[in-house]
Design a binder for these strands. Structure first.
Length: 835
RNA sequence: GGGCGGGUGGUGGAAUUGGUAUACACGUAGGACUUAAAAUCCUAUGACCGUAAGGUUGUGAGGGUUCAAGUCCCUCCCCGCCCACCA
């Protein structure tokens, strides 16, 4: 019977219904069974799933199903990262409510995921916009507040004029808003921050534990956290009481410091310029810089601007008076907001010094080319060398001098060793509606007061008009804003900012452990059993933000003694992008392929199989509809193979295998080899593309064997051959089950197996002995060229092998016994003869 | 500028980690079946020379180590991603 699109629809919906009614993938905490927690990065519910989702979730599903067949208690949940701006934009556009729009999208997404046949425990499904979930966001926030990890601070923040909200540093991409690409500007605001910097040392240190993360993700996090060792050096200001502290990682160049630069916002600047001739010029410059957006200031190829402020600093190592500048290339947020400038050995200082015609002094000489001179320099010399013009440190290699000078300065009291981090505290306030309300109350008498636990959740008011203009929508809802102070009971005002959505996704994997618990954030016992996530899967775009925040929250919750693990994700897989015509598939490019259309034409199994077969999971995947057709053909072939064998005749399933001839042995070997290789591709790095190729090899072998069987003169193959054939097909179906679960179920049922669902049948095992062959073919090389293929018995002794080799005409043509210099044997692989 | 990946047939990709390069698929060509088409099946398929047997060559380029290199070492070119005035 041909296998049609209609058959597929029927088969797939039949088994989806079966899994649903039997709750096949529902799991509970069971301390007697080994657990396995597979998780994909949950989706933002935009309504439709795209190929990126399909790829991500298919990879996760195949792993989950495999682990299930290996006997693990597998937790494989799904939820929705449902807060965020698109819902507000859609609400404005469609004149609806963000909640309504979001829940409609979730429903649609839920149905699409079901059609893919993913093995989720649907009983654990939730959305972050459910009050039952975000209540615990608020709870975490208050716990952080109580420990000083959530705090309010006025500062210059990144502001997106289009979204009318603040952005975290991590959300500013090349000076633009990560969401709408509008140029980000600076604005002074009072905002809530999370003190992630307190965890910087452990976030960095514990990266070492994450051996099963891609090295590039670890490297990206390491760069982002950005630990640097250096020295804070104190420069006294000439004729003043003030001292400037500068941070440097290059103390070896201190003798070459010819000026000092402060950030324009530096707190000392106004004090130092009071009454100087340069006062007005300096103030003008500060004003000018403040109007420049931070992104513009931070882009590297900007000309370095600055002005002399009319004051001098004393270099502590040589008592030289050097001018003090303010410059836009010095950032207040990093280090101490002040630098010592060594133009000869720092490119930025070099450019600044050239522009302002400032003095330079070489303090490191190039070992290979010792004629380095200021006149000839066209750029700073940042390589290694020996110190010169550096007093007692002359002739010291600069790497060594770094340490020596740092220690010497510490001893003399000129400075102290210090460590600086690139990581900044995380700004989480958003002036938006569709997010978790920050559970804080402002009371004129009591100050900032957290909402008490029994009043949680602080629910989002339902009837709010979203216009996208005029700042936070919540601020205009009187019934929301006006409240009683929990401490003194007097009228107070509620915080109207909501949390950044990254907050929601920083701990959802814990909530999946006990999603219906309304008394606690999660059940400690459940979390203890399921955590950490054994396999996490998602896009590389989350390498920094989400993964760093999730690690931070995990560490914090561990410090609250709620969990025992300090890292959330043991193993991480970052799947590659889906491309079409060599470009990333995206709506804006208009080159998307709708999974829904593929589903209605080919069904989920074909789509799953293609997407896994076309490329290894971590690589980019080029969409190819011909390849899709190929996956369809393969499934069809296997289906017909099973149907032909099991639907018409009853086949005796009894009897052992007594392999009689080469064909029998070959098939049995291929069967075992397929089990071995497919299993390996799961256990050693998820090479699903080769796993599927091994399934195809087995299918080819079965076909070949059946064809021989039909042409046998003796007519029907005997019982043992029937059994071998059945067993091989059975193996093929079992190995196929994680990849194409619907067809596999159907075939399993057709085969009359007693188990209700193949998803719970044990994964097949192989016998190493069956992989052996009685004869093998090896290559014979003469002087590195393959000259013959010879058939030998395994592990043949060298003398015999030598005879056989030389007797081969192809070898004899190039090598005679007398001329042999070397005779190298790679056991059971090849022979290499040197003449 | 810094970090991390890559570069293999017409295409997607394999290669047991130094041991017969191109598994498996896609595509293409030829054939079978068919009134015909689709579907399916069979055969061939890195390039070059040759009717063939066979030979030469071949994993971005060039060198090296080795009996043997896609894999190791050196020099260089190109592509992708991430970070970047971070002192």
């Amino acid at each position: 019977m041909p296998y049609t699109t209609n058959d597929i629809r029927n088969i797939e919906s039949k088994w989806q219904k079966f899994w649903e009614t039997h709750k096949t993938f529902r799991v509970d905490t069971d301390p007697l069974k080994p657990k396995y927690y597979v998780l994909e990065m949950f989706p933002y519910p935009s309504g439709k799933i795209h190929m990126g989702h399909v790829r991500n979730y298919t990879i996760a599903d195949v792993i989950a199903r495999y682990k299930m067949m290996r006997g693990f208690n597998v937790l494989h949940p799904i939820g929705y990262d449902a807060f965020g701006q698109p819902a507000e934009n859609a609400a404005i556009k469609n004149k609806t409510n963000p909640a309504e729009w979001t829940y409609r999208c979730i429903k649609q997404m839920h149905d699409e995921l079901k059609k893919m046949g993913f093995s989720y425990d649907w009983d654990r499904e939730f959305s972050t916009c459910d009050a039952e979930y975000y209540k615990w966001n608020q709870w975490i926030f208050i716990k952080m507040f109580e420990r000083g990890l959530a705090y309010k601070k006025a500062s210059s923040v990144n502001w997106c004029p289009d979204c009318e909200t603040t952005l975290a540093n991590e959300e500013v991409i090349n000076g633009t808003c990560w969401r709408c690409k509008t140029t980000v500007v600076q604005k002074d605001l009072e905002q809530w921050y999370l003190k992630i910097t307190q965890y910087a040392p452990s976030l960095l240190e514990d990266l070492k534990k994450l051996e099963q993360w891609p090295s590039r993700v670890r490297a990206m996090q390491e760069n982002w956290i950005g630990k640097s060792y250096g020295v804070e050096i104190l420069f006294k200001v000439k004729d003043a009481a003030e001292t400037i502290s500068v941070f440097t990682t290059r103390p070896d160049t201190i003798f070459g410091a010819t000026y000092v630069v402060l950030a324009p916002e530096h707190s000392l600047v106004k004090k130092l310029i009071a009454g100087t001739k340069q006062e007005k010029e300096t103030l003008d410059f500060i004003e000018k810089t403040a109007n420049k957006s931070k992104s513009l200031r931070m882009s590297g190829d900007q000309r370095k601007e600055g002005v002399f402020i009319g004051r001098y600093a004393i270099n502590p190592v040589n008592n030289e008076a050097i001018p003090i500048f303010i410059g836009d290339y010095v950032l207040m947020e990093y280090g101490t907001g002040a630098i010592m400038a060594v133009p000869t050995h720092d490119q930025r200082d070099f450019e600044f010094a050239k522009h302002h015609k400032l003095p330079m002094r070489i303090v490191i000489q190039d070992l290979k080319n010792p004629s380095l001179s200021i006149e000839d320099m066209s750029q700073a010399y940042e390589e290694e060398g020996l110190l010169v013009n550096s007093g007692e440190f002359d002739k010291t290699p600069n790497e060594e001098a770094k340490k020596k000078i740092a220690e010497w300065m510490q001893l003399k009291g000129f400075g102290k060793l210090s460590i600086h981090w690139r990581l900044r505290d995380w700004l989480i306030s958003r002036q938006r509606y569709w997010g978790t309300p920050i559970p804080m109350i402002y009371c004129a008498a009591c100050g900032v007061v957290p909402v008490p636990f029994h009043q949680l959740p602080v629910e989002l008011p339902k009837d709010v008009t979203i216009t996208g203009e005029g700042g936070s929508p919540l601020a205009r809802v009187r019934t929301f804003v006006e409240c009683a102070c929990p401490k003194c009971g007097k009228p107070a005002r509620r915080e109207t900012d909501t949390m950044a959505t990254f907050f929601d996704s920083s701990w959802y994997f814990l909530r999946f452990c006990s999603p219906r618990n309304n008394e606690e954030i999660f059940d400690k016992k459940d979390a203890q059993y399921w955590m950490p996530v054994d396999q996490y899967i998602g896009g590389i775009e989350h390498a920094i933000l989400h993964l760093l925040y999730a690690r931070f929250f995990t560490k914090f919750l561990k410090d609250l003694d709620l969990i025992t693990t300090d890292e959330p994700f043991t193993r991480l897989l970052t799947q590659g992008m889906v491309l079409k015509d060599n470009e990333v598939m995206s709506k804006s490019r208009g080159n998307t392929v709708d999974p829904d259309e593929v589903l209605s034409q080919y069904g989920a199994d074909t789509l799953r199989l293609f997407i896994l077969f076309a490329a290894p999971p971590e690589d980019q995947l080029e969409w190819n509809s011909d390849g899709l057709e190929g996956s369809w053909r393969f499934l069809n072939r296997v289906y017909q193979m099973v149907e032909k064998r099991y639907s018409t005749t009853v086949i005796p399933a009894q009897g052992g295998i007594h392999n009689q001839n080469d064909a029998d042995n070959t098939l049995e070997r291929e069967r075992n080899a397929a089990i071995k290789r497919v299993t390996q591709s799961f256990e050693e790095g998820y090479k699903f593309n080769t796993a599927i190729s091994h399934l195809m090899v087995l299918a080819n072998a079965i076909d070949k064997y059946s064809n021989i069987g039909h042409s046998r003169e003796s007519g029907n193959p005997d019982t043992s051959q029937q059994t071998l054939l059945n067993q091989s097909i059975e193996t093929l179906v079992l190995l196929l089950a994680p990849f194409a679960p619907h067809v596999a179920e159907e075939m399993w049922q057709m085969m009359g197996k007693s188990e209700a669902t193949i998803a719970q049948v044990a994964w097949p095992t192989f016998d190493e002995k069956a992989l052996k062959t009685s004869t093998i073919i090896i290559a014979v090389q003469v002087n590195g060229r393959v000259r013959a293929q010879i058939q030998i018995t395994p592990d043949m002794p060298q003398e015999e092998l030598r005879k056989i080799c030389l007797a081969d005409p192809g070898v004899a043509k190039y090598a005679q016994e007398a001329a042999i210099k070397k005779f190298i044997v790679v056991p059971n692989k090849l022979v290499s003869i040197v003449v």
